[in-house]
């Protein structure tokens, strides 16, 4: 059995209501220490509320949460000493420059004058922000603010970093930089709890994922486990000669025992949910039977598909489900 002390976050039955909206409905969460943990769900699912409770910004109405062994309500100071939060919207002073922002924060985590200055410079260099250091943050692009925001969270290396939708609205290069940073932190032993709407981000970074909807965790596991549970994605086939569409459709339906849909483009077909090995055999079968294939792709399930599959299953078996 996993000891409680090995968990960076251990929350049970978290409930939070805002007016008539039930933001969290008895959420349970166990994040192993030293891992990158993904928190996946649509807007309004309760991801940010959970993060704010764990970061001591909000009190839960019911339930308990321990972060790095400390209760978030009773011992907020002990929690704050070891965490950092990078919020969904950059938590920066827009009127001040990057250097001023970082120096203020460096002092607030306990660095003295010269050390505060040195650490600010080190982070500005690391995040390629040295050129624009002395311009007010409000003149910056969203991606640069995000990087500065992340830098501000790392003035002292936290034991637990909360990242709320780190790559929403980022250009691909900035996103890669954020991912590199998360990886470097994880390699150094920091636990990272990140929320995201993107499966590829969770897939790339997280060793475990919790899928959240309507304030509850509806599935939890490794990315592989979740995808296996929700089936493979779509097989798309483009035939070399569009005239063979009906013939191919019949052959695929017979072979895969799954519904085959013609796409809008002539000679283009798609099948939902075949396993990868079956999909490969099906493509080979068409080729061997005189139906040449021009192109094919097995798309992985999108977050939407995983999510819809999971919520549909919850509705089917809501009585058995005891999260």
């Amino acid at each position: 059995m996993e000891a409680i002390s090995d968990l960076a976050v251990h929350a049970t039955g978290l409930t939070k209501r805002f007016g008539s909206t039930l933001a969290l409905d008895g959420l349970d969460l166990a994040v192993p220490a030293g891992t990158v943990y993904g928190f996946l769900g649509p807007n309004g699912a309760g991801k940010t509320t959970t993060l704010r409770i764990l970061a001591t910004l909000l009190r839960p109405d019911a339930g308990t949460a321990r972060v790095l062994g400390h209760d978030v309500v009773r011992e907020p100071e002990a929690v704050r000493a070891r965490i950092s939060l990078t919020g969904q919207f950059a938590c920066l002073d827009e009127d001040l420059t990057a250097r001023e922002n970082l120096r203020i924060l460096a002092r607030l985590v306990g660095n003295r004058g010269r050390a505060a200055h040195a650490r600010a410079q080190e982070l500005l260099d690391a995040f390629n922000l040295a050129d624009v250091t002395d311009r007010p943050v409000k003149t910056w692009s969203g991606g640069m603010r995000r990087r500065l925001d992340l830098a501000a969270s790392l003035i002292t290396t936290p034991d637990l970093l909360f990242l709320d939708e780190p790559s929403t609205g980022l250009d691909p290069a900035s996103r890669l930089q954020v991912w590199d940073t998360v990886q470097a932190l994880a390699d150094a032993g920091t636990t990272v709890l990140l929320t995201t709407q993107y499966l590829d981000e969770a897939d790339r970074l997280a060793s475990r994922i919790a899928v959240i909807d309507h304030g509850r965790v509806i599935a939890e596991g490794t990315p592989g486990e979740l995808k296996a549970e929700t089936g493979a994605g779509h097989l798309h086939i483009q035939l070399a000669s569009p005239g063979q569409g009906e013939q191919a459709q019949a052959a695929l339906a017979h072979l895969l025992d799954l519904p085959v849909h013609p796409d809008t483009e002539p000679g283009s077909l798609s099948v939902a949910g075949p396993a990868a090995d079956q999909a490969a055999l099906a493509v080979a079968h068409l080729e061997c039977n005189g139906i040449p294939v021009a192109a094919f792709a097995l798309a992985r399930p999108s977050l939407d598909e995983v999510f819809l599959a999971l919520t549909a299953r919850i509705q089917d078996s809501s009585k058995e489900h005891a999260a």
């Binding site: 650490r119 080190e122 982070l123 260099d125 690391a126 995040f127 390629n128 830098a151 790392l154 003035i155 002292t156 290396t157 930089q177 590199d180 940073t181 990886q183 470097a184 932190l185 150094a188």
Partner: peptide, 9 residues
């Protein structure tokens, strides 16, 4: 990242 290691204090 200029040097991923330097993000660590």
């Amino acid at each position: 990242l200029h040097d991923p290691g330097s993000v660590l204090a």
